[in-house]
């Protein structure tokens, strides 16, 4: 197994609040890794470190290493924009842009352009309309949304149902072709049917991507993940194969949590 992401003694502070207390974790490539734990334990804070979304929060300091492909993304000479292109994120509340469905998906590719020639450091140029159409269709198909929206690509993304909006957000992320996709409770605002669709999608995605998903729904973690990490009060308590975590947890806290004896 190859390690896609390795965090090393990761600390996060919100002003004085020590929200993440030295998390060291290996996340494997082409697997679904679930992050579970009671609310406020630092799950979101943790995965937002992986694509440096915490940079945006005033008063937030991150210490420690996050290695992706062996490179520390917190290094000063790393371009945060490039990090985020390579590591996509889907948020708890669906947040389509108030633009058309097409524009939502085309947004990322438009920004980044295409690499002209294959010899390593190719120049980038704009997509042709054809290429862009292809990317949009492919991404929407991959996100299992194409059939539902192909006749109304110019309708606003905000006009879709909650579940559709979330799949649009996934398609939008796929369109920039990241290596890793982070999901922060992507189903918590959705009904069970929409949730089931997204879960299928997540399992399907791991063929091509490394997937990290935060969830407070333990059944969900058990259903779709290969490995599970349990957080409590800013500490990584335990991490292991999902089956092992749910059937034979090693730590007392973990057991209490998965048996429902802890909020």
């Amino acid at each position: 197994m190859t390690i896609a992401i390795r965090t090393d003694d990761l600390h996060v502070y919100f002003d004085k609040n020590h929200a993440l207390k030295g998390v060291s974790m290996d996340i494997e490539m082409n697997q679904v890794t679930a992050v579970i734990g009671p609310s406020g334990c630092g799950k979101s804070t943790f995965i937002r470190c992986i694509n440096r979304m915490n940079d945006l929060i005033p008063g937030c300091t991150v210490k420690g290493k996050v290695l992706v492909d062996g490179m520390d993304i917190n290094d000063d000479d790393v371009d945060v924009v490039d990090v985020r292109r390579r590591i996509g994120m889907v948020f708890q509340k669906p947040n389509p842009f108030p633009k058309s469905i097409y524009e939502n998906v085309a947004y990322g590719p438009r920004l980044h352009g295409v690499v002209e020639t294959g010899n390593g450091k190719g120049r980038r140029r704009k997509h042709t309309k054809r290429e862009l159409d292809e990317i949009v269709e492919h991404s929407l198909r991959r996100a299992a949304l194409w059939d539902e929206v192909k006749d109304r690509m110019d309708k606003s993304g905000t006009s879709l149902s909650g579940g559709q909006q979330q799949r649009l957000c996934i398609a939008r992320t796929l369109a920039v072709d990241p290596e890793i996709i982070l999901f922060d409770e992507p189903c918590s605002a959705l009904d069970p049917i929409a949730t089931a669709k997204i879960e299928d999608l997540l399992v399907d995605l791991k063929k091509d991507y490394t997937v990290v998903i935060v969830t407070h729904n333990m059944q969900q973690a058990a259903r779709i993940s290969d490995r599970t990490a349990f957080f409590y009060l800013g500490d990584l308590i335990e991490m292991g194969d999902t089956k092992q975590i749910f059937e034979r947890p090693q730590k007392e806290f973990t057991e209490q949590y998965i048996t429902g004896r802890m909020g």
Binding site: M53, Y107, R172, V176
Partner: peptide
């Protein structure tokens, strides 16, 4: 959340503001 969505797609802050 809209800004975050854009940034998470690898847009720069200026691109996020503009688009």
């Amino acid at each position: 959340s809209l800004r975050e969505a854009s940034l998470a797609l690898g847009a720069t802050r200026w691109e996020t503001v503009r688009h």
